[in-house]
Amino acid sequence: MLIRKPPAIKSSEITPESVYLNRRELLRAAGITTAGMISGTAHGDESDMNFKPLGKLTPSPYSTDAEPTGFADIASYNNFYEFGLDKSDPAARSGDFKPKPWSVTVDGAAEVTGTFTYEDIVGPHPLEERVYRLRCVEAWSMVVPWAGFPLGDLLKRFKPTSNAKYVAFETVYRPDEMPGQRRRLLRWPYREGLRIDEAMHPLTILATGLYGVELPNQNGAPLRLVVPWKYGFKSIKSIVRISFIEDEPFTTWNDAAPSEYGFFANVNPEVDHPRWSQARERPIGGGFFASKVPTLMFNGYADEVASLYADMDLSRYY
């Protein structure tokens, strides 16, 4: 395994101020509250559920201009095997899941470790709206208006040491509330990880909501990772543990099928899945008229992240 020394991160890249730089953008969007954008739903009965509005979100220059996928689709078409294998299972079978109260254990190579409440974790961070493309390894895609904050801002609060080469994440294990975990579909708990430079990248966020409301259970409540240039399975949901570690962490899909799912899992139209093409993707929401469209390198975030992988053979480190 090639372990690259993480490049020094420019402070301008990780300071939250960077999102305020474009004042004109901010002012233009200031009047817009996304909480009011939730549409009625054609799929399932999630429209009957009450999602708590998050209040005002700061717009972000990292948001895409692409039209967001409808709330009903985002909240009814999910891969979250903790609730079952079918895309409709998470919405249908996550009713017993209790995302509050919540706590997150932080351990490993950092000066500040321990168990923190959800409020400890999220409280200090102003929430931004990040409209990101989401590309699933199964060759479909959505555009999701997440609410969240840069993961790097949180990680810095724990003062990671120089041994923190990677950050590992773990999903909660609650078979009583998560029916999919009662079967050994994957080796529970679900685990994911990033290289520290990927984790500190300003595009990488922890999301607490979407469409201006708190995350629905099926979307990874109450706290999930979003890494928009990687296949969706990297964006681990319902996080209860964050570990700073020295070696490449165990990651669930890589464990399940190492030849098909790598540690990096960067969206790459030129490196196909062994069994299907990654060159194109289906945008969800177009009904029977949503033929596949070309997939973009790093899911369209190449300008921001390609430099992280400058000397890597991406067909080898897929």
């Binding site: 799929h43 009814s76 895309k87 409709s88 289906r282 029977f288 949503a290």
Partner: peptide
């Protein structure tokens, strides 16, 4: 597919079909 039955084909009707 026509929305005349109890449930429809979901967010990705092409895949469902």
């Amino acid at each position: 597919a026509l929305g005349l039955a109890g449930d429809d084909l979901g967010a990705d009707p092409i895949e469902a079909t």
